[in-house]
Nucleic acid binder design. Structure first.
Length: 596
RNA sequence: GUCCCGGUAGCUCAGAGGAUAGAGCAUCUGACUUCUAAUCAGAGGGUCACAGGUUCGAAUCCUGUCCGGGAUACCA
């Protein structure tokens, strides 16, 4: 926010008190009289006087300021309007400046390394991954938007028992088919074998339990290696680790299929990485660091020779970091890759976008790194996001309730297409498919970003797929409307131009002023979101702005305004709204169709 | 058992010391001869889980209770 009257007020108050004042007016509640509010309760701690006394000063000062109108005070709240010309001057007269403020005012520029997505290569991506991807790419984009440097990183889990399961099933049931020969997307193709493995495993388990009733109490997982197919998977894993040529070549082939599939899904969403790590390369990392930690005495050897990290002082349980046989556990390689990522990019902060069920794991990881003396260990951040449930409860792959990412894309695109066709009559646009894709992706990403990342969200397929109300298409629609006005204005010889003189005085209705006031909050909204690493504030903000525009659109004719001067002014206002909304959506990685 | 999240309108979610607690969906009423109705204007709908406490002021902070979810692996 950059209103002259507020800046002047801050200078005045600072002089009065001899203290640095931070003051950001709030939007006045609807039922109160005024556009903005200075809440003097918030200033009271700095001043150390009765908030109402401060409010009186503020009221006095603002009511004498040439830019303000209708200054009033209720207790410690000072409500006021800003005059139309000042509003315009301090917001839309220089929209470029308004949009560049967030970057310019970000005093703490840093380099962030953000790891997200991190898929397993045994089955296709589902809705949960989409939340991860959307949050990850949104965060990268947001941090970059406010001037930080970012490195987006993926860590693909391409090794382990899960992919071996798919490999075993493929050898048993695959008949040398390929994604090409079946016309299936690679990740779905491989995923089917993962499911087949599970089916066969279940069958063998029940046979095993039938013939050995004494095992019936045991969990299926415990009996994994007792089944022929489970044994095969174990053997495959061991062969893989010994670099067995045949196993490795099948592993390579199947992983390529999966990655081709993932990359297609990534492409549709617009997911991009600066660097992709594979766990097959990184899984051995960390051991040497553990051994060094042992030398330093930070880590301890247990009686059975396993290495543990004592973490009592962090109120965490002690953690095994090397098994008794000297092999790594999961956290060992996490320690290693964290350090590798640091060595590769030297970020100020490392961020992991990983589900909230791993909060404890990351606490442990951070504590161990700190103990090992990596003093950049205070700059780790686990962006823990909540799970996505269905109205019936959790998504369960066994019950087939998992919402598949590609299917969801297709369904939503189809719905967007249908909705577009309903509206366009006989003028079917050439780019309808592209348009539908943009609308569908916009709707989905918006839905996933509008909630605070940490909330567990309920995905109701019926409700979530709508394009009305607080949705991505609502915002896209505003831009499409504005595009349409600007285009039509052009045919009438009225153009938006950089340094056209606009008479801001004319933008004086409540609708126009409301838009300008909201616009003034945009830079702070971005900075605040970046600070909190949470895009949801931007989403809510854009909705508010778009609503204000839609009301204006209904109430204030642009091209049918009474005078040319007013047309020009309203056109400038509309153009500026489009700039902000498209900037905001771009920051959220949401595209906008030209028309809808 | 211990720890972490959460419980706000019928549903999905905002609000995280400040004014009379908000938005979307759903329900109901009204608005397309107009710059795109994927829109707008309006109505109804609340014991902010419960009980104490701190405060001039609590949905928000503290304590306890109840309910839901997650974690507490030499799984990833």
């Amino acid at each position: 926010m950059n209103f002259k009257c507020i800046n002047d007020l801050i200078v005045y108050l600072s002089k009065e008190t001899g203290k640095q004042i931070e003051l950001l007016p709030e939007l006045c509640p609807k039922n109160m009289d005024g556009q903005l509010t200075v809440n003097c309760f918030r200033l009271a701690p700095v001043f150390r006087v009765n908030p109402e006394l401060i409010a009186e000063k503020v009221e006095n000062y603002l009511s004498k300021h040439p830019d303000t109108e209708k200054v009033s005070r209720i207790k410690a709240f000072v409500n006021f309007d800003i005059s139309a010309s000042a509003l315009y001057k301090d917001t839309f007269s220089d929209i470029k400046k308004l949009l560049s403020d967030p970057e310019a005012n970000n005093s703490k520029k840093k380099k962030y390394l953000i790891e997200y997505s991190a898929p397993n290569t045994n089955k296709p991506l589902h809705l949960g991954h989409l939340r991860n991807n959307t949050l990850g790419m949104g965060l990268v984009s947001l941090l970059r938007r406010v001037g930080h440097e970012t490195v987006a990183v993926n860590l693909v889990n391409d090794r382990g028992i899960h992919i071996c399961k798919s490999m075993v099933a493929y050898k048993l049931f695959g008949n040398n088919q390929t994604p090409e020969s079946t016309g299936k997307k690679g990740d779905h193709f491989v995923g089917e074998f993962y499911v087949l493995f599970d089916k066969e495993f279940k069958k063998q388990i029940s046979e095993l339990k039938k013939s050995n009733p004494e095992l019936s109490d045991k969990a299926d997982e415990e009996l994994f290696s007792e089944t022929p197919i489970g044994k095969k998977a174990q053997d495959t894993l061991q062969k893989w680790e010994k670099n067995d040529t045949e196993v490795v070549s099948l592993w390579k082939k199947m992983n390529e299929w999966v990655m081709d599939g993932f990359n297609e899904t990534y492409r549709r969403m617009g997911v991009k990485f600066d660097k992709v790590y594979f766990e097959s390369d990184t899984y051995k990392l960390g051991k040497d660091i553990i051994l060094k930690g042992l030398e330093k005495g930070v880590l301890k050897k247990r009686d059975d020779n396993a290495v543990i990290a004592p973490l009592k002082k962090y109120k965490l349980n002690d953690k095994v970091v090397l098994r008794a046989d000297g092999t790594s556990v999961y956290i060992t390689q996490d320690i290693g890759t964290t350090i590798k990522k640091y060595d590769d990019f030297h970020p100020d902060t490392q961020v992991w976008v990983v589900g909230d069920e791993q909060i404890y794991h990351f606490k442990t990881l951070f504590a161990i790194l700190k103990e090992l003396g990596y003093d950049w260990g205070n700059s780790f951040f686990h962006l823990a996001y909540g799970m996505i449930n269905l109205p019936e409860g959790k998504m369960k792959s066994r019950e087939g309730t998992v919402v598949d990412a590609d299917n969801l894309f297709d369904e939503m695109t189809e719905l967007a297409k249908k909705a577009t066709l309903e509206r366009c009559g006989d003028n079917i646009p050439d780019d309808i498919d592209k348009r539908s894709e943009i609308i569908a992706q916009g709707a989905l990403k918006f839905m996933l970003l509008k909630f605070n990342p940490k909330t567990t969200i309920t995905f109701d397929p019926q409700a979530s797929i709508k394009f009305e109300g607080d949705t991505g298409p609502y915002l896209q629609y505003v831009c499409a409307r504005i595009n349409s006005i600007i285009k039509k204005a052009g045919t009438e010889g009225i153009y938006l131009s950089e340094n056209k003189s606009v008479n801001g005085n004319l933008l004086s209705t409540q609708w126009e002023k409301n838009i300008a006031v909201l616009a003034s909050f945009y830079p702070n909204t971005l900075l605040d979101a970046a600070e909190k690493m949470d895009c949801s504030g931007i989403v809510l903000y854009l909705i508010k702005l778009a609503k204000a525009f839609n009301s204006f659109y209904r109430e204030c004719p642009v091209l049918n305004a009474e005078t040319e001067e007013l047309k020009t002014a309203r056109l400038a206002l509309s153009g500026a709204v489009r700039e902000i909304i498209s900037d905001g959506l771009r920051t959220l990685t949401i595209d906008i169709p030209e028309a809808m």
